[in-house]
């Protein structure tokens, strides 16, 4: 646990913002913008009828599926591109061009190809997280220090041993960094994708609450839940960074 003195400033700022929010809503006599307390009761209402868990589950399912598919493609592809010069020379320019295209720009194409359903957001998540993971994996292979590759060559080990005991463990920390970036982007994108196309998910919750009777308390509740889950996903990846197989990278 962090000492109280370290978390105190953050808590104080948080409380001040909350108080300011309350004060502004009270002072402007707004009928649409909710007070913090209305957000709490709104959230309890959603949790009570079970729809909150459905939205969270739908969003997490889409992120989980899209992200896993992206990982299954990005890691082997990144290792191959990093190791084989020709593969890098051929594929890297294409990926560098596709990478800056916002996943949101893919939405019309996703709807055209996959229609409105679960496949479209999963596709968008795949597109958004596959590139950062490829880039990180390639960079990981390219930055393996020559002294380690030389040592492996010196002992004359097989390709299999070279990959299993040198290349993969050397790149693993970078792969995990790529996964953390990829998961972060995936979470950003799922919400955006759900705002447009679907009947469930946290993104849908936000847009639907606005459309169906200006329930801004539920809009803000949705936003806060997205933030909290995003934070939790990031924490989860940080736990992966602390695993024994990659600890050497941070211990030096």
């Amino acid at each position: 646990m962090k000492p109280v003195r370290e978390v105190l400033p953050a808590l104080a700022v948080f409380a001040a913002l909350l108080a300011l929010w309350w004060l502004v809503v009270w002072a402007t006599q707004s009928v649409v913008f909710p007070t913090p307390w209305q957000v709490v009761t709104g959230t309890l209402e959603l949790a009570g009828d079970g729809s909150l868990w459905e939205h969270i589950g739908a969003s997490l399912f889409r992120v989980g599926t899209g992200f896993t598919l992206a990982m299954l493609v990005a890691v082997p592809l990144g290792l191959w591109m990093g190791w084989v010069r020709g593969a890098y020379a051929t594929l890297n320019p294409i990926f560098q061009m596709l990478r800056p295209i916002s996943p949101i720009a893919w939405i019309p194409i996703a709807i055209l190809w996959f229609g409105v359903g679960n496949v479209s957001p999963i596709f968008l998540i795949f597109i958004s997280s596959v590139f950062p993971m490829i880039v990180q994996t390639v960079a990981g292979v390219h930055t393996i220090e020559q002294r380690y590759l030389r040592a492996a060559a010196n002992f004359g080990v097989s390709r299999r041993t070279l990959f299993r005991q040198v290349v993969i463990p050397a790149v693993l920390p970078q792969i995990i960094v790529g996964m953390r970036i990829g998961l972060g982007v995936a979470w950003l994108v799922v919400v955006a994708a759900e705002m447009i196309a679907l009947r469930s998910g946290l993104g849908y919750l936000i847009i639907d609450s606005r459309n169906a009777g200006n329930r801004y308390d539920l809009v803000i509740a949705g936003m806060i839940i997205i933030g909290l889950i995003g934070l939790m996903l990031d924490r989860l990846m940080r736990v992966a960074e602390g695993m024994k197989v990659v600890r050497w990278r941070y211990a030096q």
């Binding site: 002294r147 050497w248 990278r249």
Partner: peptide, 8 residues
Amino acid sequence: QGSVFPWL
């Protein structure tokens, strides 16, 4: 520089 593998 040494080349003991740090991950083993």
